[in-house]
């Protein structure tokens, strides 16, 4: 039981840290990738004037 607990803690403290760092990095790179700016801006504007029916 103790072994299991120690193992889990060790796993959480090592792997957990790095996966969170890697994930943060990935998200930031995706978000601030220069060529993504245009689609993001377009998406933000797209809801302001959505028509009252679906596109054909």
């Amino acid at each position: 039981m103790n072994f299991e607990h120690e193992m889990l803690v060790g796993f959480a403290k090592s792997y957990g840290l790095f996966y969170l760092l890697a994930l943060s990095l990935l998200v930031l790179v995706y978000t601030y990738w220069p060529s993504n700016k245009k689609p993001f801006d377009r998406a933000a504007r797209s809801i302001i004037d959505d028509e009252d029916r679906p596109w054909e």
Partner: peptide, 26 residues
């Protein structure tokens, strides 16, 4: 959705909304 729509202005920073999303979920 409703705040930008009601204000008639797109969200201030779409990028911030994405960073915020992943921050909140994780």
């Amino acid at each position: 959705y409703f705040l930008p729509k009601q204000a008639g202005r797109p969200i201030y920073s779409y990028r911030m909304s994405i960073v915020g999303f992943w921050g909140i979920t994780f």
